[in-house]
Simulated scan of single mutants.
Amino acid sequence: MTTGAAVAVRGVRRTFGAGRYAVHAVDDVSFDVAPGELVALVGRSGSGKTTLLNLVGGLDRPDAGSVSVGGVDVTGLDEAGLVRLRRDTVAFVFQTFGLIPVLTAAENVGVPLRLRGLPVADRERRVRLLLQLVGLADHAAQRPTELSGGQQQRVAIARALAVSPRLLIADEPTGQLDIETGLSVMALIRAVVEAEGMTAIVSTHDPVMIALADRAVRLVDGRVVDA
């Protein structure tokens, strides 16, 4: 697929179940995301946001249509290709943080770099930079249980940025946070997208969060109604 878009979604469908029990989670969805753009994926719970993000990030495959990330046809990749995509190109931030409880903040951030085999000195330098970027330089030695929800999400964002992904996918990243903390996390995502030169798609159902995005793509019952 040849396109100048960072993300190009074309006629994507994903159905769960069959016959009278079929649920059309994503139904003929098409949209583009420009390089460096922060797009808010908006819709109520059950509108198809998570399914669509999973399709874009290669965590799931569509029943029809295609997804391109950075000019690479994600839907045409084999399992090894999808692993490389998720390791090198796409990073995820989830509502539930997903931190490893026994590791410190610094160790959690360093996990992707360790998996890449980065030398210790380079890894520690990158981790320090990222913790500073997300405002947690003084919390490097603390474990997740010693951090607030907002701080844990900041660690998760730093970990997602560790390998300098081209695309950040965040699924309701403020869903477990209070309004004030959620806004600070969204502002952080806005700042790191600009600082790291990334593209980002962030799902949310909170209208207040949308103001920080460049554009909103609105889903209703699995279909795009406004892009």
Rank of each mutant, 00 (worst) to 15 (best):
M1E: 06
T2Y: 08
G4F: 00
A6M: 14
V9E: 07
V12E: 02
T15L: 01
F16I: 04
A18T: 13
A18M: 00
G19D: 08
R20S: 06
R20C: 00
H24K: 09
V26C: 04
V26L: 03
D28T: 02
D32M: 02
V33D: 06
A34E: 14
P35D: 07
E37W: 13
L38I: 08
V39W: 08
A40D: 08
A40Q: 11
L41T: 08
G43E: 09
R44L: 14
S45P: 13
G46H: 09
G46P: 14
S47Q: 05
K49V: 08
L52V: 13
N54K: 13
L55H: 05
G57V: 12
L59C: 02
D60I: 07
A64N: 01
G65L: 09
S66K: 01
S66F: 04
S66R: 12
V72R: 15
D73M: 04
D73V: 11
T75V: 00
L77M: 07
L77K: 10
A80E: 15
G81L: 07
G81R: 06
V83D: 15
R84V: 10
R84K: 06
R86T: 09
R87D: 15
R87T: 12
D88V: 00
D88N: 13
T89S: 12
T89H: 13
Q95T: 09
T96G: 04
T96H: 12
T96E: 14
G98E: 15
V102W: 04
T104V: 00
E107D: 14
V111M: 12
V111S: 04
P112V: 02
R125Q: 08
R126S: 02
V127I: 13
R128E: 12
L130F: 05
L136A: 11
L136S: 11
L136Q: 11
A140W: 12
A141I: 00
Q142G: 03
T145S: 12
G150M: 12
G150K: 05
Q151N: 08
Q153L: 09
V155F: 11
A158T: 07
A158S: 06
R159T: 10
L161I: 07
L161E: 03
V163S: 11
S164T: 14
R166A: 14
L168R: 09
I169N: 03
I169D: 01
A170P: 03
P173R: 05
T174F: 13
T174H: 06
I179K: 13
E180R: 13
L183M: 12
A187D: 12
A187V: 00
A191F: 00
E194W: 02
A195V: 12
E196V: 15
G197P: 07
G197K: 01
G197T: 05
T199F: 07
I201D: 03
I201F: 01
V202W: 05
T204A: 08
H205Q: 11
D206K: 01
D206P: 09
D206S: 10
A211G: 10
L212M: 15
A213M: 02
A213C: 07
D214L: 08
A216M: 01
A216R: 04
V217L: 05
V217R: 00
R218V: 15
L219Q: 09
G222R: 09
R223C: 08
V224K: 06
D226A: 15
D226C: 02
A227V: 10
